[in-house]
Design a protein around this nucleic acid. Structure first.
Lengths: 206, 206
DNA sequence: GGGTGCATGTAATGGGTTACATGATTCT
DNA sequence: AGAATCATGTAACCCATTACATGCACCC
């Protein structure tokens, strides 16, 4: 079952990146890591073959730039056909992919874990999310300054905003859950629900 | 590079499920769909071979139950060795898996989309998350009643709570973002950041 | 001399879903 | 009559990461 004809999400990612500016496969890998790495990933093993196929199909155009002393760059440009394909793909409703969250899996089976194990995972997670939240805040601030007039800026901020909302929700949940685990150890049949109900009211007031 | 010796996450999921009660592969698939489907997935094509391998390794024990008129059930039980393996796995720090969020990808390239396309995706997402939030609330309520004394209940509620936090954060972000998109159409260089800062203070107050 | 960055590509490997094969029973 | 549920299992396929192969230049 093929969802979008002969090209998959990787190919459309490449088209999208080329809509920003002409690039080489190497550049794309860099951008995936730096700019969209928080919600997307691509590896060379996907990128290069995809580029080849798309060049054959006329969606991108390849030009070789030689500079002395280092490898040739194969710079790709978006063609008219390529841009059309991209626009078409953007319209296709998003089907949510399968989630696989190992932290939640381990917590689900947490009754089998030794003392402190669950809390340990949660603390590590909490720290990571707090770091992430700061990173997002930093990038947003920097981007807002440096790219003030870029027409794509608002869309980049949207994805960053999502990252922040997520991180903050994760932080709140992790703290709450650590408290619940504390209560379990102490003995009382404690209170996952009070925390939840309070949050829910907050959320609906948005 | 193998992370956990010869068994992957699928196998440990099976061990975890068997820690709840003896089950057949079919039962496991059901449970994955119903109970942990919001953060995990497994298919028959993974489950049956994994079970076979683990039986050979002595981590689970297989008993065949025959009932007339319908297929045999191969019911598996956790062995001592299996339980030990599970406990060991639970202690291993969680490495966060790669994320691939197609909605965010499309929004990132949203400047290339026709009028209303981005907002359309967001509204669909918003609805889905609102439905989800209600589902989580329902399950939590039901579970709290019906499994009042189950020692694993708190851990199930923890994963549900995570789902709720996530859904509520998604809802808030989606609403905010729809407003931002509205602003873009209207013309003003509007305000992703005011919304974000307000949320952030709320979050830190938890 | 050895790591890192630049730069392209292929092959091996792994993890996962879907489709297929089989077959009785029960619900619509 | 036809679909869905129960139940197990294999084979084909797809998508993706990692390792490998190559090679120059620059910095420590």
């Amino acid at each position: 079952m093929k969802s979008e004809g002969e090209f998959g999400a990787t190919a459309y990612t490449m088209l999208g990146l080329l809509s920003i500016r002409p690039m080489s496969g190497y550049d794309m890998r860099q951008m995936v890591g730096e700019s969209i790495g928080h919600f997307w990933s691509e590896s060379y093993g996907q990128i290069y073959p995809a580029l080849k196929k798309m060049a054959e199909a006329g969606l991108v155009e390849k030009k070789t730039e030689s500079s002395e002393g280092r490898p040739d760059r194969h710079v790709y440009t978006l063609t008219g056909a390529g841009r059309q394909r991209l626009e078409g793909w953007l319209e296709i409703p998003v089907k949510r992919g399968v989630v696989r969250n190992e932290l939640l899996l381990k917590l689900f089976f947490g009754a089998n874990a030794g003392a402190g194990v669950n809390a340990g995972h949660l603390r590590a997670f909490l720290e990571a999310e707090e770091r992430l939240a700061r990173v997002f805040a930093g990038i947003a601030a920097q981007l807002t300054k440096e790219r003030k007039s870029d027409p794509q800026l608002p869309f980049w901020l949207i994805t960053l905003s999502r990252g922040r909302h997520d991180a903050l929700a994760s932080i709140a949940w992790a703290k709450e859950t650590l408290a619940v685990l504390d209560g379990l150890d102490a003995g009382g049949p404690v209170t996952q629900n009070e925390g939840q109900r309070k949050r829910e009211e907050d959320g609906h007031g948005a």
